[in-house]
């Protein structure tokens, strides 16, 4: 092998890579916040009585979990304009990511809700708490605590999945890599660099989740 690595050749593109990182981070943060919020609402609907709403959420969850993300993305970006819904690449990408994470987090959070012993609900009920109060104050916090690791992983998976957005020209990290590679053909160097960046982002995100966990669940600190 007589190839000389030329990582130095990437320096002129550092701005592009930095902008790519920034886009990926923003997509990840907005998706995580909106996806988990919608997932909580979805789980609340799924965990309650069988109603039209809970069944509709069920259909949505199955639809998203059983189809490829890239197809969902293409449908939103290329398909929806046909019926008059035109979104920019960034909007379409973000929407696809939120819809995707919300579906998965609905199922994850629902599992947490269903793990709460019935006695907790009966205690809340005999104390006179309303259904909403019981859900937000008694059921949800320990439910989230239980499924927190699974939810963390899912959020990171969706962040990494944002790479697919490069296919509809969202200028995130992978888009930047593709662009640079098409200019200087340094595929190994470029993809090596963004691999490391994705790895760092994922580790950073996991640490961020740990930090939030620390403040969200003070009871776990007391026990250890």
């Amino acid at each position: 092998m007589d190839y000389t690595f030329q990582f130095g050749e990437l320096l002129p593109y550092s701005d592009l890579i930095a902008r790519g990182v920034l886009s990926t981070v923003i997509l990840a943060i907005v998706t995580t916040v909106l996806g988990c919020l919608l997932g909580t609402l979805g789980a609340a609907a799924r965990a309650g009585k069988q109603t039209f709403l809970s069944r509709a959420v069920g259909v949505y969850v199955e639809l998203i979990r059983n189809t490829p993300f890239i197809v969902q993305l293409f449908f939103i970006f290329f398909g929806l304009p046909t019926i008059g819904i035109k979104l920019t690449a960034g909007e379409a990408g973000l929407l696809a990511m939120v819809i995707n994470l919300a579906a998965y987090s609905t199922e994850i959070i629902r599992a947490g809700i269903e793990s709460i012993p019935k006695g907790q609900l009966e205690a809340a009920r005999t104390l006179g708490l309303s259904r909403t109060q019981t859900f937000t104050r008694v059921v949800l916090p320990p439910a989230l605590e239980k499924i927190y690791p699974a939810l963390t992983s899912q959020c990171i998976i969706v962040m990494l999945g944002s790479a697919v957005l490069s296919q509809i020209s969202v200028e995130e990290l992978t888009f930047a890599a593709n662009f640079i590679q098409s200019r200087n053909f340094l595929s190994f160097e470029v993809y090596m660099v963004i691999t490391v960046i994705y790895l760092l982002l994922a580790i950073l995100m996991r640490q961020g989740f740990k930090l939030i966990h620390y403040f969200m669940f003070p009871n776990l600190r007391a026990r250890s």
């Binding site: 009966e122 205690a123 009920r125 005999t126 006179g128 104050r137 916090p141 320990p142």
Partner: peptide, 20 residues
């Protein structure tokens, strides 16, 4: 039942304290 909760308290076999 919520109205009743002001007159009737209940204690359970499994305590049912809120762990968080």
């Amino acid at each position: 039942i919520r109205k009743l909760s002001k007159s009737v308290g209940m204690v359970f076999q499994s305590f049912n304290l809120f762990p968080h």
